[in-house]
């Protein structure tokens, strides 16, 4: 924890998760010696100053580089999982989504002209009974997010597509809420 402060990373920003991914941290705020050394060696940092600079770099790159973003996002699932559980508790998942999908904490803004996606997604999941989030759903939400930013009218979506059922239902939910026609071209 102190270490994160040393390299000027807040606990509640995406960069923190980026560092965790870099150092292959097994759980929140925990590092292994091996992961720590390998991680920093890979990016050529051998001093606090360089680490601060790298963290800064991550901070600006995560929202702009989709591949990096996805890596960090996916790493978060095992990172935040409770000991011995397969799935992520809803409350934790919701926290992380709020982190990843808003620009304030170094994430990507998940909002479009007609649709406050993040807000609705959380609302939708709450309505469904705050069920734990499995790995597949976790990962697909991020893919889904990218798609909706490309085309918020769901032109890419089809009922026979490979989306997890929860996302299929969410599409219908959003369409109803937006008052879309039932038919989606």
């Amino acid at each position: 924890m102190k270490f994160l402060g040393d390299i000027q990373v807040q606990l509640d920003e995406v960069t923190c998760l980026g560092i965790a991914e870099l150092l292959k941290s097994p759980s929140m705020g925990e590092f292994t010696r091996e992961g720590f050394l390998n991680g920093w060696r890979a990016v050529g940092c051998d001093s606090i100053d360089k680490m601060v600079a790298h963290a800064d770099n991550l901070r600006s790159q995560i929202p702009t580089q989709p591949d990096l973003f996805r890596r960090v996002y996916r790493y978060t699932f095992p990172l935040c999982r409770m000991q011995g559980q397969r799935n992520l508790q809803f409350e934790i998942a919701a926290e992380q989504w709020k982190l990843f999908f808003t620009p304030e904490k170094g994430g990507v803004q998940w909002d479009t002209e007609t649709t406050p996606w993040l807000e609705w997604w959380i609302e939708f999941m709450e309505e469904r009974g705050k069920k734990p989030v499995n790995k597949d759903l976790w990962e697909q939400v991020e893919v889904f997010m990218r798609k909706t930013l490309d085309d918020e009218r769901f032109g890419w979506w089809s009922a026979d597509g490979a989306w997890p059922g929860a996302l299929d239902d969410f599409v219908a939910w959003v369409q109803k809420k937006r008052g879309d026609n039932m038919e989606v071209e």
């Binding site: 397969r86 799935n87 499995n134 790995k135 597949d136 759903l137 009922a159 026979d160 490979a162 989306w163 997890p164 059922g165 299929d168």
Partner: peptide, 14 residues
């Protein structure tokens, strides 16, 4: 039904 198949695919993923 397709949704049923999808549901079971998800179950097997889990």
């Amino acid at each position: 039904k397709v949704p049923d198949i999808k549901k079971n695919i998800e179950a097997l993923m889990e």
